[in-house]
Design a protein around this nucleic acid. Structure first.
Length: 437
RNA sequence: GGAGAGGUGGCCGAGUGGUCGAAGGCGUCCGCCUGCUAAGCGGAUGUGGGGUCUAAAGCCUCACCCAGGGUUCGAAUCCCUGCCUCUCCGCCA
């Protein structure tokens, strides 16, 4: 949510920034008019409350002295009638303004390239060299099926399309990847390049709808979520939701910033707008595992911190030996809550393209304002909103796909990246099942 | 799921209709004091909005004692609903 007072004072700046995001139809004038009318009405209301408080106080005094107070009580009743009338309008208007504000996306940081869609995204750098194959590389779903570790047909029987069953080495590889990534970030395997290690958290996968509003998924993207209406809960689309909201409605000490969390979670997405896209394989599933990094940090350092967070995600891909590139999303491709986003894209040999495997964003105070996450400055004074950031570190299902494709051999086997072998009991390779009988 | 108890400031805890944004304690901060430290003494210390002011400070004011409704001239206090916590019983991976 944007700051209504800043919109009032810098309307043109906001209007321009949102034009860059293809948000041409935001009814600024209407919202600002409502807000002005609202504050006038609020003043009126406060004046009447003051009057009522005075009357109640005087009545109390008179009663104690045994004097007659019936005329004051009558006056107070009249004031109250007026207050009730105003309160009806007030709550209607407040809800209206809030509803509008909740639908306005964050404004992009000045360093974000301006452009209408993903074609204007800019590559920042590449790491690793895509391997040259002496044979035609297979897509991961064929490799997985041949290895007997990946089964979409049985998943469809259980749950329908966009689900998968991993078995044997596949299930084990998934578990190994989660453990490897968590250990990387939680700092058991390496020294941190700076600052403190991540605090590992294990969080609920079902949350109240308010949490979804706190991080920006609701109200705008409700149809993207799996809802459990009987219990008023929502299946999380990412660990970002519960982890960011861990500190909602609270005031942190500046000395404790940045707060850094890492969590692994199953993520649930309806993929309602993705009909026809990525219908095969592990790329776009209703349910997938992801390791997520979340920072709450000081506004002054958040852009520096975004570099470090993104670097933490990149380190995972580097250690696994997967070729990838980092791109910065342009204004037209930026997510709703984000002010700046780097995507990490991993090389997928069967398609000859880079595919998103991590998305690292700075939300500035957009989520913090919704979730009321603040900190007390060292030098004292008023609490200030933190900046929130998060990034995948990284998506597990897509990593499995990337490993299968990048490290496949002509004989159908797949060589495991060195760091994973310890997590696989020393196993070096995924091999096709021996022919039975 | 059934029965009961309860949710008050950073923390503990008093407060059952008016003078309560809220006693007292702890913690924190600022002074004072004692070679240092501890103790002691004095003071300050919630959040969000509006106003006053050149600005800060200060002052005035509105809201907030889990949330939302209600009763009343007046609600932390009474009533209803929801959420949460605790105890006992039942059930259960």
């Amino acid at each position: 949510m944007l700051d209504i007072r800043r919109i009032l004072s810098d309307t043109d700046v906001f209007r321009k920034a949102l034009m860059d995001r293809n948000q041409k139809n935001i009814p600024f004038e209407a919202i600002l008019n409502d807000e002005r009318a609202l504050s006038a009405l609020r003043k009126n209301w406060e004046g009447l409350r003051e009057k009522r408080n005075r009357l109640a106080e005087d009545i109390g005094k008179k009663k104690r002295l045994g004097e007659d107070s019936s005329s004051l009580m009558e006056e107070s009743r009249l004031v109250n009638a007026e207050i009730s009338r105003i309160e009806q309008d007030l709550s209607k208007m407040e809800a209206g303004v809030r509803e509008q504000l909740l639908l306005i996306p964050n404004i992009p940081h000045p360093s974000v390239p301006v452009g209408p869609d993903e074609h204007s995204n800019k590559e920042v750098h590449r790491s690793g060299v895509p391997r040259t194959f002496s044979f035609e590389p297979l897509p991961h779903w064929d490799i997985g099926t041949r290895l007997g570790i990946l089964d979409f047909d049985r998943a469809a029987v259980l749950s329908g399309s966009r689900f998968s069953v991993l078995s044997g080495d596949g299930a084990r590889l998934e578990r190994a990847l989660v453990a490897f990534m968590m250990d990387e970030h939680a700092g058991f395997q390496k020294k941190r390049r700076s600052g403190k290690p991540y605090t590992e958290v294990s969080i609920p996968f079902l949350v109240r709808p308010e949490m979804m509003e706190g991080t920006g998924q609701f109200p705008k993207f409700r149809e993207e979520s799996f809802l459990i209406p009987d219990d008023n809960l929502v299946l999380i689309p990412t660990a970002e939701v519960p982890v960011t909201n861990l500190n909602r409605d609270s005031i942190l000490d500046e000395a404790d910033l940045p707060v850094k969390y890492v969590a692994s979670s199953t993520c649930f997405r309806r993929e309602a707008g993705a009909a026809g896209k990525d219908t095969r394989g592990l790329i776009r599933q209703h349910q997938f595992l992801k390791v997520e990094l979340v920072w709450l940090t000081r506004p002054e350092s958040s852009y520096e911190d975004l570099e470090e967070l993104t670097g933490d995600a990149e380190a995972v891909l580097e250690k696994l030996g997967l070729p990838y590139r980092r791109i910065v999303l342009c204004t037209g491709d930026l997510g709703f809550s984000s002010a700046k986003t780097y995507d990490l894209e991993v090389w997928m040999p069967s398609q000859g393209v880079y595919r998103e495997i991590s998305s690292c964003s700075n939300f500035e105070d957009f989520q913090a304002r919704r979730a009321a996450i603040r900190y007390r400055p060292k030098e004292g004074g008023k609490p200030r909103l933190v900046h929130t950031m998060n990034g995948s570190g990284v998506a597990v299902g897509r990593t499995i796909a990337a490993i299968l494709e990048n490290f496949q051999e002509e004989d159908g086997s797949v060589l495991l990246p060195e760091p994973l072998r310890a997590y696989m009991g020393g196993q070096e390779r995924l091999s096709p099942p021996k022919k039975q009988r």
